[in-house]
Design a protein around this nucleic acid. Structure first.
Length: 363
DNA sequence: AAGCCGGGGAA
DNA sequence: TTCCCAGGCTT
């Protein structure tokens, strides 16, 4: 006799109560009511980001923005600064916009309805279901990459994890489990337990099937195909990007920084004045021509930085300490640029490579 | 449906 | 090196 849905979900939740990792956004008593704002912020920060990294960065974000009102009252710039180094910076801008929308249009209450949640910027199907189920006990299936992988193996589906068919199969599975739950049970825990299972047991490589509460129901485990599923996705192409950054100081030891465009890579973040080219490095001469300034430039550093779609190579050019006329001319050549102390620059929203250039270079 | 958007840890 | 992570938005 294969396990019934009721038996499967009981085994899953029993395993979760035993094996749940202590995480900053997770209450000690799993059934305890959760602060919807904490659920919202943690779920957005967890998008495409591993739990260990969020555990490092969430406390500082919450210390600065302890509730919805404080985030809604903050500037986008400040929200972005607390996101520095976390990547996918649109998440921070969307979260800030969502907080403002909730404050102004939803009486400062995180909506309980997944469809309403999904109208907020940066909240898609997964996050809407996660917030509704964990914060408001709404039985909405939340399917992330972990859960898709678990169900693909459970059902023995020869699909990629991102496949819409796999996502639909997972939603159906979870809906069945939630319906089989006792009235008083917490449906959000089904979502959380499946995510935990995917993150710690049903891992992409070397799954630990012997420790899995669903192994007796799993097609992949029975046919020994857990290593072949999900089907691997096509690798993304990575195009080169050459970045030549200018490290300049004025006589007071301040650094010149400029804002990036509001769209595209590292959108709305700040940087040392940087020239980007997709085909070749700059030379000292070409940089002088680009700035229309005759500055003495020496090459100070060179390093690579990979993102999902780019292989960036940064060259750092040291312009040394500039006199007042040169400092004025350089700032005028870079729209929106400002001379800031090292301390002030450290508080800006910066990408990881620009943080290295501005704050770790010898200057 | 496919491309774009970061960064880091693990193997 | 490659892979993938508590995804979402745009085209």
């Amino acid at each position: 006799m294969p396990p019934t849905e009721r038996e499967q979900v009981r085994a899953l939740l029993a395993w979760f109560r035993r094996a749940a990792r202590p995480l900053p956004w997770r209450p000690r008593t799993l059934d305890a009511p959760r602060d919807p704002y904490l659920v919202l912020v943690s779920e957005v920060m967890l998008q495409q980001t591993q739990a260990a990294r969020v555990a490092e960065r969430l406390p500082a974000f919450l210390a600065r923005f302890p509730d919805l009102a404080s985030l809604a009252a903050a500037t986008e710039h400040d929200a972005l600064a607390l996101w520095s180094g976390l990547g996918y910076y649109r998440r921070a801008r969307n979260l800030h916009a969502a907080a403002r929308e909730i404050a102004s249009r939803h009486r400062a209450t995180i909506p309980p309805d997944p469809a309403t949640l999904a109208t907020l910027p940066g909240i898609g199907d997964y996050t809407a279901a996660a917030v509704a189920s964990l914060a408001h006990r709404v039985p909405a299936p939340a399917v992330d990459g972990n859960v898709a992988r678990v169900v693909i193996r459970l059902n023995g589906l020869d699909l990629a994890a991102a496949s819409p068919l796999a996502r639909a199969a997972a939603r159906e599975r979870i809906a069945g489990w939630m319906a089989a739950l006792p009235r008083t049970a917490h449906p959000g825990l089904v979502n959380e337990a499946l995510i935990e299972l995917g993150a710690t047991v049903c891992t992409p490589r070397a799954p630990r099937c012997h420790a899995c509460p669903l192994r007796t129901s799993c097609t992949a485990a029975r046919t020994a195909t857990q290593h072949d599923l999900p089907r691997p996705a096509a690798p993304a192409a990575r195009t080169p990007l050459y970045c030549d950054a200018l490290l300049a100081l004025d006589r007071r030891g301040r650094l010149l920084v400029e804002p990036r465009p509001a769209r595209g890579l590292w959108a709305a973040l700040w940087q040392a004045p940087t020239r980007e080219h997709n085909a070749r490095r700059a030379t000292a001469r070409s940089l002088r021509a680009w700035l229309a300034l005759d500055l003495p430039l020496t090459r100070a550093d060179r390093f690579t930085h990979a993102t999902t779609h780019r292989a960036a190579e940064f060259t750092v050019w040291n312009a040394g300490t500039l006199g007042a006329p040169e400092a004025r001319a350089l700032a005028n050549a870079r729209p929106g640029s400002q001379w800031l102390t090292r301390t002030a620059a450290a508080r800006l929203p910066l990408s990881t490579p620009q943080r290295r250039i501005l704050l770790e270079s010898r200057s």
